[in-house]
C-alpha cells in the first residue's frame, strides 16, 4: 500500500517545485536543490562542454543550463548545510535505471539509492 502510494505523494510534492523526474535516487541536496534529471542529457555530473557563453543549455537554448543553475544555487542558496554545498563537486555514480518511478524516500530509508555496482570505484 505504502509502496504504491508513496511515489504519488512524492511526485505531488517534488514535481511542482523541482520538476522531479522520479529517478528514485534523489540527489537534490547535492545539486543546489536542482534536479539533474531535467538536464536534457540527464547528466549526474554536469555541466557538459556545450554550455553557451551566456549560460544557456546546448540542447534547449531557451533555458539556462541546469548545471549552471545547480552550481549557482549550491553556492548561494541560504540555509544549505556546508556539506550539501560541497557535495556538488563529488562524483555521482551512474543512475540505477531499475529504480525509476520508485519513491526515492523509500529507497533512502532502505539504502537502495546508495547501492552501486560492485565494480564502481567512483573517484577514489
Amino acid at each position: 500500500m505504502l509502496r504504491s502510494l508513496l511515489p504519488i505523494v512524492e511526485h505531488a510534492v517534488k514535481g511542482p517545485v523541482w520538476d522531479c523526474q522520479m529517478c528514485g535516487q534523489c540527489v537534490l541536496h547535492e545539486t543546489g536543490m536542482t534536479c539533474p534529471m531535467t538536464c536534457p542529457k540527464t547528466l549526474r555530473n554536469g555541466p557538459c562542454g556545450g554550455v553557451a557563453v551566456d549560460g544557456a543549455c546546448e540542447v534547449k537554448p531557451e533555458m539556462q543550463c541546469v548545471w549552471v543553475k545547480a552550481n549557482h544555487r549550491a553556492e548561494n542558496l541560504p540555509l544549505l548545510p556546508q556539506s550539501w554545498r560541497d557535495e556538488i563537486g563529488h562524483l555521482r555514480a551512474p543512475v540505477n535505471n531499475s529504480l525509476a518511478g520508485d519513491s526515492s524516500w523509500m529507497n533512502l530509508v532502505s539504502g537502495a539509492d546508495r547501492k552501486t555496482p560492485s565494480g564502481w570505484k567512483g573517484s577514489e
Binding site: 549526474r44 551512474p94 543512475v95 535505471n97 570505484k121
Partner: peptide, 17 residues
Amino acid sequence: RRVFDIDGPQLVSIMRT
C-alpha cells in the same frame, strides 16, 4: 534517441575499472 546512460566523468571511472 539520445542515450546518456552514463556521463563523461562516470565513463572515466568505468574505464579505470
